[in-house]
């Protein structure tokens, strides 16, 4: 069997189309508490869109023009929404025990996405091109040096931090979100804990 044929069959058996785009959800998903994950993704989409515009026009534009200020503000408030909803999504999945029934990897990928997002936000604060960014960089260099990464992750190097912020880390977050979503779709939403609490952890 050819490699393309094997790939095709593996995708068809592991990623069935009806599981990726379901038209129905279990009855227990009928609650606002299940909306925080998609709200986080909405925030991420706004971040990418406004980030592309900011990257295209550059720091002079986002600091000294009215439209630049507006898009800078959109990018800033989108990241507030992104982390706000991601943390509430974390609370929701924690109290649902969303790692149960073979969903441990989904939970772990979510945790990694959270950590990489923090690094992305951090490099974003370093990329502002203002005194705030300089202050954060000068403070953060000691933390980076103390854990031994300062030699190849130099927070005082604007070009490097900007590159991390607009290329490497957003791609990493996008890939992690894609993996996380695919896992959620393949395994479905975790069933609620039984009311009498008799379920044994599997």
């Amino acid at each position: 069997m050819s490699m393309t044929r094997r790939t095709q069959e593996a995708l068809a058996s592991n990623l069935p189309y009806e599981e990726l785009l379901p038209s129905e959800q279990p009855a227990y998903v009928h609650s606002y508490v299940y909306l925080f994950g998609v709200a986080t993704i909405a925030g991420f989409i706004v971040l990418i869109a406004t980030g592309i515009i900011l990257a295209a026009f550059g720091p002079q534009w986002w600091h000294f023009s009215a439209v630049g200020h507006f898009f800078n503000g959109l990018h800033f408030w989108a990241v507030q929404a992104f982390f706000f909803f991601m943390v509430v999504h974390l609370w929701a999945t924690f109290f649902q025990g969303a790692w149960r029934d073979g969903r441990g990897t989904t939970w772990a990928v979510g945790v990694i996405t959270f950590l990489v997002s923090i690094l992305t936000a951090f490099t974003g604060y370093l990329s502002q091109q203002n005194f705030d960014a300089q202050w954060i960089a000068v403070q953060a260099k000691d933390a980076m040096n103390s854990v031994g990464v300062g030699a190849f992750f130099n927070v005082l190097n604007f070009g490097q931090m900007y590159g991390f912020h607009i290329v490497i880390l957003p791609i990493a977050v996008a890939i992690l979100i894609a993996i996380h979503l695919t896992m959620v779709r393949l395994r479905g939403v975790v069933k609620p804990y039984p009311i009498d609490g008799t379920e044994v952890q599997r």
Partner: peptide, 25 residues
């Protein structure tokens, strides 16, 4: 921000979701 997150989380748990329930798969 922390107070707002707790408030939104509590409202999401307590408020009824509008519309009819979807059937279970």
């Amino acid at each position: 921000v922390i107070i707002l997150m707790i408030l939104i989380f509590a409202l999401a748990v307590l408020l009824p979701f509008p519309g009819g329930q979807e059937s279970e798969r």
